[in-house]
Design a protein around this nucleic acid. Structure first.
Lengths: 225, 225
DNA sequence: CTTCAACTACTAAGATTCTCATAGTTTTAA
DNA sequence: TTAAAACTATGAGAATCTTAGTAGTTGAAG
């Protein structure tokens, strides 16, 4: 099982290489996109792991060119948080999966395993949560409402994700504190309210139908009207 | 098994009450220190859980007065992060344990169980890490070097704790990132270095012997000289 | 001994998270 | 119906966390 890793940051590159080798994969490395392309065209890799921002040839272009050359090798693209615009573009380039940095190595391994399994390689597993025009891509961390990209911070994302997974259910503040903040219970401050407020500004403010509703004395719900 | 809970914040109070009752404890409550004192003197509680900042009579005074009246009931004191000075005082007041807010309810339960066990009630289980005049109290989160109190942020505390637990061992940046930040590996930024720098300013700067050492190309160690 | 590359220290700025105080809203009860 | 109590919204600010850039250090190679 041979994997090509493309990454210009030497330490990251070697960390990935070492980790993969410890897990008994054969690893080739490339510091830039041009060399990566040559290698990928010549060899028969089971998987290509590539960064987006690189000298020579960026991950998107690399990905696209390989696909155009008829190379079907699964591609796992590494992206940094905050490169949101880029991410959206990325999906057209033929990458099979995304992984947002920073990540746990086990997470990378899991993706590698799933992508190198025969048959599942063409499965584009973009796990998303959807609700009334609101869409969360859990792989790329991109959130949109009616195609419009919404920038969320990490905490806001986690909060919205929890509400999406429990859409229609009234969630108490204690429940939210426990599941989003990992905080036992009421600290005396109103941080949940504050964050609900943040979310509303980003998700509901510029739209006619509001999705986040207050249930007085009970908590909050994500629902249509 | 009867417990007295003293807390002026109604929601927190009721959360604790409810949680304890669900776990089959009998619970009395008090909104302020004066009432708490009366109750505590009259009844024979297995445990008193009290906040520090309260109207009427604060947790320290309450604790001290009860002890002076010969009441030996174990006391679990709830404190908010950042009340460091107070915490140090607290130990003289006769409280048996501290719990820093915010906390998980299971943690509270664990303390309650341990304090209500006969025999262990007088056990002051102040778990501390020590190394060359440096002392970390894991219950109160108070850090001192040569008796001098050092204020650390949550992240700094976690980092120092990890280094204390691995004193003498060289810890790579990847290792620190994994264990302190829960980040898989190198993100390309130098946050570990920055935090080592923060720690050094607080822990080593004003002292002759330095405890944090750099091992070039390897990482950092906590050791004497 | 010098030079270079790799690594680390330090500073500063920016983003995020959380707290606090105040204003507004809803419910309850007189 | 009105007042009080309980609950929620919101703005502002402080603390913390993170990134980025530059300066400084170390070790290795010539």
């Amino acid at each position: 099982m041979r994997i090509l890793v493309v990454e210009d940051e030497p330490k990251t590159l070697h960390a990935i290489q070492q980790g993969l080798e410890e897990n008994l994969y054969e690893v080739d490395i490339a510091y830039d996109g041009l060399i990566a392309r040559q290698l990928a065209m010549r060899n028969n890799y089971s998987l290509i792991i590539t960064d987006i921002i690189m000298p020579g040839l960026n991950g998107f272009v690399l990905s696209r060119e390989l696909r155009q050359s008829g190379i079907q090798t699964p591609i796992l693209m590494l992206t940094a948080l905050g490169e949101t615009e880029d991410k959206v573009n990325g999906f057209d380039s033929g990458a099979d999966q995304y992984l947002v940095k920073p990540f746990q190595f086990v997470e990378l391994l899991a993706r590698v395993r799933s992508l190198t399994k025969r048959g599942s390689s063409t499965l584009m597993t973009h796990q998303t949560l959807k609700f009334e025009g609101l869409e969360m891509n859990l792989d790329t961390k991109v959130v949109t409402r009616d195609e419009q990209v919404i920038e969320l911070t990490a905490r806001e994302f986690t909060l919205l994700e929890y509400m999406m997974r429990n859409q229609g259910r009234v969630l108490s503040k204690v429940q939210l504190a426990e599941n989003v903040w990992d905080i036992g219970f009421d600290t005396g401050t109103n941080f949940v309210e504050v964050y609900i407020n943040y979310l509303r500004k980003k998700i509901d403010k510029n739209f006619d139908t509001k999705l986040i509703h207050t249930v007085f004395g009970m908590g909050y719900v994500l629902k249509k009207e």
